[in-house]
């Protein structure tokens, strides 16, 4: 079970990811999107989910038992190739329902100028 003290804690990303045109093009192509000037609206998940995984695994949760419950994106500025993005993840809530642990992680994607370009909320269900 997740240590309740971690709720409200923010894990600051240590490494930035430079968005490549190839990465946007591959993600867009997989979704049938032809516009690759900007990333598709769900592209932030490629950064935020990996970080959530490492944060929650290091906090003792079993990623093999995870199911995605719900997802929200707020996009302040579309993600483009060349951006250097750092991801800061906050465990917003954690509760246990019928033995399943339900954790919501908020990930702030921040560019090199410290602007929050997108926020991703993932609610993850760790099955009992």
């Amino acid at each position: 079970m997740l240590n309740p003290d971690l709720v409200g804690h923010t894990f600051t990303g240590v490494e930035s990811t430079t968005i490549t045109p190839e990465s946007i093009a591959a993600f867009a192509a997989a979704l049938g999107e032809s516009n690759i000037d900007v990333a598709p609206p769900t592209y932030a998940i490629t950064i935020s989910l990996e970080q959530s995984q490492s944060v929650l695994q290091s906090s003792g949760l079993n990623w093999d038992r995870v199911v995605h419950g719900d997802q929200k994106f707020v996009i302040n500025e579309p993600i483009r190739a060349g951006m250097k993005i750092t991801c800061n993840s906050t465990i917003e809530s954690a509760r246990v329902v019928a033995g399943n642990e339900i954790v919501t992680v908020r990930s702030d994607l921040v560019d090199a100028a410290s602007t929050v370009v997108a926020i991703s909320w993932s609610t993850l269900v760790f099955r009992a």
Binding site: L31, E33, N35, D37, P40, T42, D70, Q71, K72
Partner: peptide, 25 residues
Amino acid sequence: MGLVGQYVSELAGSSANVQEFSARF
């Protein structure tokens, strides 16, 4: 959700016009 996002981007004229997007699985 990404495919639904593609639909939204198309309606919006571009992914650049999508401000919020949410769903429950």
